[in-house]
């Protein structure tokens, strides 16, 4: 297992290099001139523009630019944005915000998703089961933007139970954005739990558990739930990566100063250093959580062994 984890961690290095280069190239390929856009209607003096270009290596060919960027990275320098702020500072300020948002979303995903799935799976065909089926179908078919704006209007503006936007009210202000960010994943988790539980309930070993004279609670919790939650846990782990991606939209809708919004704004300003730095970090998290899932999978299911 240790060797397996080490090998997987080593493999992340080429993936990170490849990912960062791709993102770098895409920012490079964006149309328009970031320096001119920076200046707006009143053009900067040619000398200033040239100085900025030189500072950010904007006149170099793609490979040279990327090479200089990587050279800086190796020395711990993530570069600066056009206003001279170090990218590392942006990341360290905004990462906790996104981490909180994602964390809240995962908690919703686990609690609501699994609870709804378990109750529906145990009482298939019941009113609650149908309610879960209809609700989850709605959740996955409504675009997050619509869901976000509508809930913002209903709960924030009309009912006033949560802040409309921003993070001025601490953890409380993350509730609605967290729920919206979790919405689609939550629906998938509920459905997956329901199906998986129903499958497990039909399994031979559950029949054995009943034949052993175990009480219903033990049969369901010990011999059904644990087995049926294995695919759910792996889904949630892999889903953390997509939540980080989804945060880009949610943070913009709810005006939350996290990494997602940093990416969104930097793409508009064509600030390569910020975009590449943040996205590469997200890619790393994605790989990392996938590794965690694989390890967790082996812990949960003794049949899985990595050699």
């Amino acid at each position: 297992m240790g060797r397996y984890v080490a090998r997987r961690l080593l493999l992340t290095i080429p993936v990170l290099i490849g990912a960062s280069f791709l993102i770098f190239a895409m920012v490079y390929a964006l149309p328009g001139d970031p320096i001119r856009a920076l200046a707006g209607d009143r053009p900067l003096p040619a000398a200033v523009q040239a100085a900025l270009r030189a500072e950010y290596n904007l006149d170099d060919p793609l490979l040279v630019q990327y090479g200089k960027y990587v050279l800086g990275l190796v020395q711990g320098d993530f570069g600066t944005d056009f206003s001279g702020r170090p990218v590392l500072q942006t990341i360290s300020e905004r990462l906790p915000v996104t981490a909180t948002l994602t964390g809240v979303a995962i908690v919703f995903e686990i609690i609501i998703g699994i609870a709804a799935g378990v109750l529906a799976g145990l009482r298939r065909g019941s009113f609650f089961d149908n309610l879960v089926l209809v609700t989850t179908t709605l959740l996955v078919s409504i675009p997050v933007l619509v869901l976000g704006f509508v809930s913002q209007y209903v709960f924030g503006v009309r009912l006033g139970v949560v802040p409309v936007a921003g993070i001025s009210e601490g953890l409380y202000s993350y509730l609605l954005p967290g729920l919206i960010l979790a919405a689609i994943s939550l629906a998938y988790v509920a459905r997956l739990t329901r199906t998986s539980l129903a499958d497990s309930l039909r399994a031979d070993y559950v029949r054995t558990a009943r034949a052993k004279g175990l009480d219903r609670r033990t049969v369901v919790v010990r011999h059904t739930l644990r087995n049926s939650l294995i695919p759910v846990v792996t889904f949630i782990g892999a889903d953390i990566g997509s939540l980080l991606g989804g945060a880009i939209i949610t943070e913009s809708v709810f005006n939350i100063p996290g990494l997602g919004r940093a990416v969104f704004e930097s793409v508009q300003r064509q600030e390569g250093a910020v975009v590449v730095g943040v996205i590469t970090l997200l890619v790393f998290f994605f790989i990392f959580f996938n590794l965690v899932v694989d390890v967790l999978y082996a812990v949960l299911d003794p049949r899985i062994r990595y050699e």
Binding site: A203, D204, Y205, R207, T208, A209, R210, A211, K212, G213, L214, D215, H223, R226, N227, I230, L300, D301, P302, R303
Partner: peptide, 25 residues
């Protein structure tokens, strides 16, 4: 009825691989 299962009447099944729970020793 449940209390009879085990000490009273017990049962073994055809396919022990699927009849045993894979995640417990």
């Amino acid at each position: 009825q449940r209390k009879i299962r085990g000490p009273g009447v017990s049962m073994i099944f055809q396919d022990a691989l699927s009849a045993l729970n894979p995640v417990y020793s």
